[in-house]
Design a protein around this nucleic acid. Structure first.
Lengths: 140, 140
DNA sequence: GGCATATAGTCGTTTTTGCGAATATGTATT
DNA sequence: AATACATATTCGCAAAAACGACTATATGCC
């Protein structure tokens, strides 16, 4: 009694464009299994905060990540699109990112920052990233 | 025995950008299981020939398709990238395209054009698309 | 309220992309 | 070699994307 997937109407062009930028790929790689707050992205990628925020907004509009406010901090996490094809491509891509050298390097820096946040002035008071299972997107 | 995949050095950004355009997605969908000559693309998509050629060149430079000359005609086919992650994402994407309504419509038009090429002035003399198995890309 | 902090959004500019029109190349035919 | 045909490439422009600098908003704390 399942309902057939509405695979039309989904904008595949836009979906793939979201992956067509290295900064966004790096953000997704960091969020692969954790919910992370913006200041960590800024610290790990070493890029300006407005740039990070803009790319996160891009991913949010594309339905690939979701945000959660926690006081002053905003936490971002990956959400699986309800479109089946999109979800499969996203999963596959996340697995691919995990194999990439430079993406692994980002993850190493993230681990270090999580262990010793006090060493990064900007992270001293920030909430630590928290493991998550990628949630399913609410009805588009 | 086996050689480990060189997953670094591959430009993921560029790879995904190749999918970030509807014309290119339509071309890939048509090539899903056949080698097709340019005049068919032009006829089925109803777009100018230079535009089609430019997008095919884009896909070729991205290592996603290969071309074969046959007299006056150029035939294009999908090639699986040697990068494992890329190959998996490509396969997944082709399967996704097969589910999409408008992509299915393109395929229907292609089938009709193949059955009655004489009905399309431009295809009268052109070589028919030929089924292929996606070949593996030669060493990058 | 006033100030500090974390993040988001705007503005103007630079870069990149996609396009149609025109042109060039390569192949077959005569 | 002249021509015709299929395809590729170039050129100039318009639209879109990405960026840094700046400004705006939201929250917490005194």
């Amino acid at each position: 009694m399942g309902m057939a997937a509405k695979s039309s109407s989904f904008n595949m062009e836009r979906f793939f464009q979201a992956f067509g930028d290295n900064t966004r790929l790096r953000l997704l790689n960091l969020m692969r299994d954790r919910e992370i707050c913006v200041c960590y992205f800024v610290e790990i990628l070493g890029q300006g905060q407005p740039k990070i925020s803009r790319h996160l907004a891009y991913l949010r509009r594309a339905g690939i990540v979701a945000a959660r406010r926690d006081g002053k901090w905003m936490h971002y996490r990956i959400v699986m699109p309800s479109n089946i094809g999109a979800a499969q491509v996203l999963s596959q891509t996340l697995a691919w990112l995990a194999e990439d050298r430079s993406m692994q390097a980002d993850r190493v820096r993230l681990s270090k920052a999580c262990c010793y946040p006090a060493k990064f002035a900007a992270l001293e008071a920030a909430p630590l990233p928290v493991p998550v299972n990628c949630s399913i997107a609410p009805e588009a």
